[in-house]
């Protein structure tokens, strides 16, 4: 399906939830939606006969400075369509609905996003740190993250030989 057609289709199907929809490099479409509508939109993405975005290829969180965003890359095996869905959220209370019950594979992606960016996913069954140790402080991928110098008595910065 051509990109223009897909954009039209998406606008007609879920226009009320879409904040912004435009083309993206690499033959992709980026669609920004209202945070509250995430779960119903994801459900219809997966279930709708004309869309059939059956798989979630990638999920990531971004710290845009003034706000956080979570981005979902959807792909449809049957129709060979790509779609990028983006939701923004408040910086002070980054929270979004979990889509784990729709795409089960997103479980670890959400845990990773929580771990590295501190975005909480409502309704996620096991939202714990994934990559970092459970007692790690802070979320490293935030732009205002300060690299700790000591962790559990372990010095984290190696002295360079060049500094004499």
């Amino acid at each position: 399906m051509k990109r223009e057609d897909l954009i039209k289709l998406l606008l007609s199907k879920m226009g009320r939830s879409i904040v912004r929809i435009e083309e993206m490099p690499n033959n992709d479409i980026i669609m920004e939606i209202y945070t509250d509508d995430l779960v119903p939109i994801m459900v219809s993405m997966k279930k709708d006969e004309d869309l059939r975005f059956t798989t979630l290829m990638n999920q990531l969180g971004v710290d845009y400075g003034e706000s956080f965003a979570v981005i979902y890359n959807l792909y449809s095996f049957d129709l060979d369509n790509k779609l990028t869905v983006k939701v923004y959220m408040d910086k002070d209370n980054p929270e979004v609905d979990s889509v784990e019950h729709i795409f089960r594979g997103v479980n670890w992606f959400e845990r990773e996003t929580y771990d590295l960016l501190g975005i909480r996913f409502k309704g996620h069954g096991n939202l714990e740190r994934l990559l970092l140790p459970p007692d790690w402080e802070g979320h490293p991928l935030r732009k205002d993250y300060v690299y700790p110098e000591v962790y559990n008595g372990l010095e984290l910065k190696r002295k360079t030989l060049l500094e004499e």
Binding site: M24, P25, N26, D28, M57, N58, V62, I71, T84
Partner: peptide
């Protein structure tokens, strides 16, 4: 300025780079 998601095929499957 821009955002892009490119998928490539690595021996262990799709390696996607989402670049902002």
């Amino acid at each position: 300025k821009g955002e892009i998601y490119v998928r490539t095929e690595c021996p262990r499957g799709e390696m996607g780079f989402y670049l902002i």
